[in-house]
Amino acid sequence: MDREDIKEAAVSAIQYVLDGDHSSAMRIVRDLLDTGDPRAVYGACGAWAGSGEVALEATDGKRAAGDWTLFDIHPSGLAGTAEETFGLRFVTAYCNADWPTTAALFNAASSAGGKQFQRSVVAVLAVGAELNARVTR
């Protein structure tokens, strides 16, 4: 997949989630994971986190890199599962332009592999979609 394909897939997945069509969003996630190309999956995660950042700025105002916290992303600052925590931490790091942390988090999740990696990727999509949903409320 090239960058435009990844971007198109990522945007479509967010829109499907916002429209309540979770099965179509999951089909896109599975297709990304099935490419076996970690750059494609990381690119999609970055697109979902980036769309969340734009949504945060629309609802909370622009901030300097490093000023976003987990509490800005999620009211409790915590999540229920390791994968949900990964999603929150990845999006927070992305919003703070902390590229070494986004890469380290992604590499750790990718190394875990299997269902844990899949659920981690879905968690980033879920956080990005939730932040976008705030704008439409």
Rank of each mutant, 00 (worst) to 15 (best):
Q116Y: 02
A47H: 10
D31E: 14
A64W: 08
G66P: 06
A129H: 06
R63Q: 14
N96I: 04
Y94C: 02
P75H: 12
E130I: 03
E53C: 08
S12Y: 09
R27K: 15
A123D: 00
G52I: 02
L33V: 06
R134H: 09
T102F: 08
A10E: 05
I6W: 00
D5G: 13
T81M: 12
R137D: 09
S76V: 06
S24L: 12
M26N: 14
G113D: 04
V124L: 05
E8L: 09
A13T: 02
A93W: 06
W68R: 05
L56K: 05
E83V: 04
T101W: 00
A55G: 04
M26R: 14
T81Y: 08
N107V: 05
G114W: 09
D31C: 07
R134F: 11
A65T: 10
N107I: 05
L125P: 01
S120D: 04
R137L: 13
K7I: 12
R39D: 14
A9C: 08
A109L: 15
D21I: 10
F86C: 03
D72V: 07
F117C: 07
S24W: 01
D21P: 00
A123I: 06
P100D: 09
T85E: 13
L78M: 12
T102K: 03
S12P: 01
A25Q: 07
L70G: 10
A44H: 09
L88D: 00
N96C: 11
W48K: 04
T81P: 05
D72R: 02
S110C: 00
G43L: 03
R134V: 06
K62H: 11
D19K: 11
W48T: 01
Y42K: 11
D2Y: 07
Y16C: 06
A97H: 14
D98Y: 08
D60L: 15
A58M: 14
A47V: 13
I28N: 02
S12W: 02
Q118W: 07
V11Q: 12
G61V: 06
W68D: 00
E84R: 10
V91H: 01
A103L: 13
L70C: 00
D67M: 12
F86W: 07
S120R: 08
H22A: 10
D37E: 14
